[in-house]
C-alpha cells in the first residue's frame, strides 16, 4: 500500500505517494520529477544514484523511501544556483571529468560531499569516490576535476 511521504528536496518540500519500500531513487525520478539522479545497477555497486541525505552520502537505490520521511535530500538538480555552476560542476566541465555523463550526477554529489567533509575520506579523492564507478574516464580527469574544484572554491567560487 502506498504512503504519503514528505521530505525536502534541494530545499523545497515535496510529498510523494509511494510504497514505503520503494527505493528513494525511483521516488526522486518518477514521483518528485527529479530524473537527474541515475539508475545504474539498483544494488549499491555503481553509485550513479548517489545523493546527499541529511548531509550524508548515500546510494538512493538502497534507501527505502519510508526512511527518507522528514529528511533533507540534495541531488544534482540543486547544486547550481540561478547563474552559476557549483565549483565541482564547473571543474568537471572544464577538466573533462564528464564523458558520457551517466555517472556524473552521482560522481559530482560524491565530490561535493567530499569537499564539505574531507575528514570522511582520509585516503583523499580516490577513497571519497570509490563508490562511484565511471567506465569512460579511467578516473584521471575526475581526479583533475576534484583538484580544480578545490582551486575554484579557494578562489571564492560557488559551492557549499
Amino acid at each position: 500500500m502506498k504512503q504519503t511521504i514528505s521530505f525536502t528536496l534541494n530545499g523545497n518540500s515535496v510529498t510523494v505517494e509511494s510504497h514505503p519500500m520503494q527505493p528513494l531513487l525511483y521516488a526522486l525520478r518518477e514521483d518528485a520529477d527529479a530524473p537527474g539522479t541515475k539508475y545504474g545497477c539498483g544494488e549499491g555497486e555503481c553509485g550513479a544514484c548517489t545523493v546527499i541525505l541529511n548531509d550524508e552520502l548515500v546510494m538512493s537505490c538502497l534507501v527505502p523511501v519510508v526512511q527518507a520521511e522528514g529528511a533533507r535530500v540534495e541531488t544534482i538538480e540543486g547544486l547550481a544556483n540561478a547563474d552559476e555552476l557549483h565549483a565541482v560542476q564547473q571543474a568537471f566541465l572544464e577538466s573533462g571529468g564528464a564523458q558520457c555523463g551517466i555517472c556524473t550526477p552521482g560522481m559530482i554529489m560524491a565530490g561535493v560531499h567530499h569537499l564539505r567533509h574531507p575528514e570522511r575520506a582520509p585516503g583523499g579523492v580516490p577513497e571519497a569516490l570509490e563508490g562511484n564507478l565511471c567506465r569512460c574516464t579511467g578516473y584521471t580527469r575526475i581526479f583533475t576535476a576534484m583538484k580544480r574544484a578545490k582551486e575554484i572554491l579557494s578562489a571564492g567560487g560557488t559551492g557549499s
Binding site: L57, M59, L62, N132
Partner: peptide, 9 residues
C-alpha cells in the same frame, strides 16, 4: 565495508 555510501547506511 562497501564504499562511503554503504558505510553511511
Amino acid at each position: 565495508t562497501g564504499a562511503l555510501q554503504i558505510q553511511n547506511r
